[in-house]
Amino acid sequence: MSKPLSILKIESSVRGGASVTRRLADRVVADLLRGAPDATVVTRDVSAGLPQIDEAWVGANFTDPAERSAAQKETLALSDELVEELRAADVLVIGAPVYNFAIASTLKAWIDQIARARVTFRYTENGPEGLLTGKRAIIAFASSGTGLGSDVDFASGYLRHILGFVGITDVTVVAADQMLTLGETQVEAAERQAEEAVARLLAAA
């Protein structure tokens, strides 16, 4: 008997109920649950902030696990927890609003906590190798004026790259972008189109 699907949802928007990415991410999860009603869902909301990595964190991370002090283990405790959440997930759903042409600083802090040499990636004689293989990621992308894939979109390409770097290469982006360039009715239509794209994506899976 196969194990239930495991979904990890990462939220980074500071806009609460007004957030487009939160609504899109919720739609992604809801559609996943329709296809796998016994799935487990873990939500990690990073919008309030995560600790930034610092010298102590880097020192602990590069110390052999068997030789880490109690203080170093405590320094890495949150990172270990975040890594285990990600390692356990079959599907990663990321709510990624665009702030000033890039991802939220809190989402970057999450990435810094989970991108760990010898844990989620390693360097080999053939180059870097991601260790979190066999997973799928769906990014719920929303922006006020930045077009998805445009020359000033430093969010979606970065997310694709860093996810691939740790081994997650099956990445899809569903977008409601350039929302402030649209009228009110067009904004609603753009959200509906993004939600329809989610439904088509998961129906085809």
Results as ranks from 00 to 15, higher is better:
111 I>K: 05
62 F>Y: 14
179 M>S: 05
12 S>C: 09
46 V>P: 09
158 Y>R: 01
19 S>P: 04
122 R>Y: 11
148 L>P: 13
160 R>E: 03
152 V>E: 12
102 A>P: 02
192 R>M: 06
114 I>C: 07
101 F>H: 13
36 A>L: 03
30 A>L: 04
68 R>K: 07
191 E>K: 10
105 S>P: 07
165 F>C: 00
12 S>L: 11
171 V>Y: 08
75 T>P: 12
123 Y>P: 00
121 F>T: 00
4 P>K: 13
184 E>P: 10
8 L>P: 14
153 D>S: 03
114 I>D: 14
143 S>H: 10
14 V>E: 13
20 V>R: 06
60 A>W: 00
39 A>D: 03
196 E>W: 05
159 L>D: 14
51 P>F: 07
2 S>F: 11
4 P>N: 12
59 G>S: 01
166 V>C: 07
157 G>T: 01
94 I>Q: 13
65 P>D: 03
170 D>I: 09
181 T>I: 04
20 V>I: 08
23 R>S: 07
98 V>K: 04
154 F>Y: 13
37 P>Y: 06
18 A>P: 01
64 D>F: 11
103 I>D: 04
67 E>Y: 07
131 L>W: 10
166 V>F: 11
154 F>M: 08
127 G>T: 11
44 R>E: 15
46 V>H: 08
109 A>Y: 03
81 E>H: 14
139 I>R: 06
128 P>G: 03
177 D>F: 09
38 D>F: 10
96 A>T: 06
94 I>M: 15
24 L>I: 14
117 A>D: 02
18 A>T: 01
63 T>W: 05
133 T>I: 08
149 G>T: 04
108 K>N: 07
139 I>Y: 04
184 E>I: 02
84 E>S: 09
183 G>T: 07
197 A>I: 02
39 A>M: 09
150 S>C: 11
131 L>F: 12
148 L>W: 11
7 I>P: 01
75 T>S: 01
91 V>G: 11
9 K>S: 12
84 E>G: 01
199 A>Y: 01
56 A>C: 02
131 L>H: 09
34 R>D: 10
22 R>T: 00
125 E>G: 02
13 S>N: 05
106 T>D: 14
122 R>T: 14
38 D>R: 15
151 D>H: 10
201 L>D: 00
3 K>T: 15
62 F>E: 04
168 I>N: 02
144 S>H: 10
137 A>P: 12
178 Q>I: 08
147 G>F: 05
109 A>C: 10
126 N>F: 12
168 I>Y: 00
111 I>V: 15
39 A>E: 11
33 L>E: 02
49 G>D: 05
118 R>P: 02
174 V>H: 06
1 M>E: 13
11 E>Y: 11
75 T>E: 15
105 S>R: 06
104 A>S: 14
163 L>A: 12
145 G>E: 06
25 A>T: 12
137 A>G: 08
59 G>Y: 08
150 S>F: 03
21 T>N: 09
53 I>E: 03
80 D>F: 05
138 I>A: 13
65 P>T: 00
92 L>Q: 09
91 V>E: 04
143 S>F: 03
186 Q>N: 02
102 A>T: 15
68 R>H: 07
17 G>I: 11
120 T>N: 01
119 V>T: 03
13 S>P: 08
181 T>K: 15
117 A>H: 07
47 S>C: 08
190 A>M: 05
72 Q>E: 14
97 P>M: 00
148 L>H: 00
177 D>V: 06
